[in-house]
């Protein structure tokens, strides 16, 4: 079964869009992340219920027109977000 990725719960993050960049404060680590697209879009798409990687790609394509997302690259991005605590697996 493919892993399900969920965004960290809303109360765990402070998300402030600045311009093309978004500032995200991760409460559990006290670390600020300055991120560009598609990270905010990924977090919104995953939501608290979560998606598998293929489902996420489909959702990003539908909602944000990111049709060229490649699975390996997006998977690597997700792993970084998991390491940072912004996304959880299982």
């Amino acid at each position: 079964m493919a892993a399900v990725y969920r965004a960290a719960p809303a109360e765990a993050l402070r998300i402030v869009p600045l311009d093309a960049f978004t500032a995200i404060y991760h409460r559990a680590s006290g670390i600020t992340h300055l991120v560009g697209p598609p990270v905010p879009e990924i977090l919104t798409a995953l939501g608290p219920d979560g998606l598998t990687l293929p489902a996420l790609i489909a959702r990003l394509g539908d909602t944000y027109d990111l049709l060229d997302a490649d699975e390996a690259a997006l998977g690597a991005r997700l792993d970084e977000l998991v390491a940072a605590g912004l996304v959880r697996t299982a």
Partner: peptide, 8 residues
Amino acid sequence: VAPGEVFM
């Protein structure tokens, strides 16, 4: 200077 750069 754009906000993202200012922030950084």
